[in-house]
Nucleic acid binder design. Structure first.
Lengths: 214, 214
DNA sequence: TGATTTAAGTTGACGCTGTCTACATTTAAA
DNA sequence: TTTAAATGTAGACAGCGTCAACTTAAATCA
């Protein structure tokens, strides 16, 4: 019988805690792993049991970090909103471009994000439990994203190409158009690449026409 | 002990079948009762067990009329779409009104329907299982509603107030704006009546501006 | 009509789910 | 070093959708 030297190889190669009972930063791992599951198989595929298995943790472990499953999904949604906001901000801050063009690029970025992160987007804007549970910090993350739109609209107003009216109303109109379009795409659309970009350009131009001076 | 005359009173007052084993038109009852539950407590509150109880029927009875729960919910959604289409059609056919005004009234009717039938609307446009299962007849009901919009847009084009362009693209833009706005309202809005109608009028006018000749 | 097939409703069971409670282990504080 | 707090685990429970097997009523056909 071979002599068993306990855990030697492991403890040599990886530096690891003496015990694996307490995971490091499980809260963060839960969020990112849940996000991964959502991207892979949709939000309905996320179960606490499955999530626990993937992280080598029991099914009730999440309850030490989140009130319940909805609370966890809200955290994932919140993370999605920060990614979303960053994508919009990148366009808003792109140097050497006139505000009106950056505005249009932001519209394209909005649509691009929705199509490239369909499961995130659905979770953020359409998952009933998440949408109407709404943590305070989740609300804040959503507002921060919306604020990117208001900032660029303000710049456009100052450049004189967009009507000088109530920013909130204007932002609501633009946001509605973008969100409605993405929702329709996610639900129904099954077409070719070329038609998609034609539709997208049409949407961007018409939304712009809606807020333009006339 | 009183002599029990079985079911006499009942069978005198109501004309009823000899047995209640087979319900009359259970399929229809399932749809309308499920719709009622959705309006009362939201789609998540609909369970086959609860539905069965309310109709004095076992929990598996629906399986004789629908493939599964999703299939039942699709039928409810389909019914919602026919109500929705009717509401739009009413505006489109209202006599003695110019096309452009009927178009705007249709926009208002769209929003009104969404706000007065929040649970229906969510089921029709936002419930993941329903939206991406999509029976053939459900698709047809949805297309019929969308077609109302195309018909009025065509009239508006002929009246010369709306740009003569691809009807499908134009309808998509209008639909997107309306749907996005309603989604945002259902998710977030908690305001007073006056502000709501101001927002709604703004939306309707801006969407119109988007499709107008310029 | 009577016999038989088909449609419609029922009960029992199964596996899966989220979550509560009580317990175990590790880390931090006193 | 003792104690308290944080974190992870296992068992149990009720509710869910759904499958299979059975029962009853209605429809069809001889």
């Amino acid at each position: 019988m071979r002599i068993k030297i306990p855990d030697m190889k492991k403890s040599m190669t990886e530096k690891e805690p003496k015990s694996t009972y307490h995971k490091v930063n499980l809260r963060e791992s839960l969020i990112t792993e849940a996000a991964r599951m959502i991207q892979e198989e949709g939000v309905a595929s996320v179960t606490l049991r499955g999530l626990g298995q993937r992280l080598d943790v029991s099914r009730t472990a999440p309850y030490r970090h989140f009130e319940d499953k909805t609370d966890l999904l809200c955290a994932v949604s919140e993370y999605g909103f920060t990614l979303f906001r960053q994508a919009l901000e990148t366009e808003r801050l792109s140097p050497g471009v006139r505000a009106i063009s950056r505005f249009q690029n932001m519209g394209r970025a909005y649509i691009h994000f929705a199509l490239e992160n369909t499961s995130y987007y659905s979770l953020m804007f359409r998952e009933p439990t998440v949408v109407d549970h709404q943590t305070a910090s989740l609300k804040a993350a959503g507002d921060a994203a919306l604020n990117e739109l208001k900032l660029i609209l303000e710049e456009c107003q100052n450049e004189g190409l967009v009507a000088q009216e109530n920013l909130d109303l204007q932002a609501m109109f633009v946001w509605s158009g973008m969100h409605g379009y993405c929702s329709l795409l996610l639900d129904k659309y099954q077409g070719e690449e070329g038609e998609l970009s034609r539709m997208t350009e049409y949407m961007v131009s018409k939304v712009l026409q809606g807020v333009s001076k006339h």
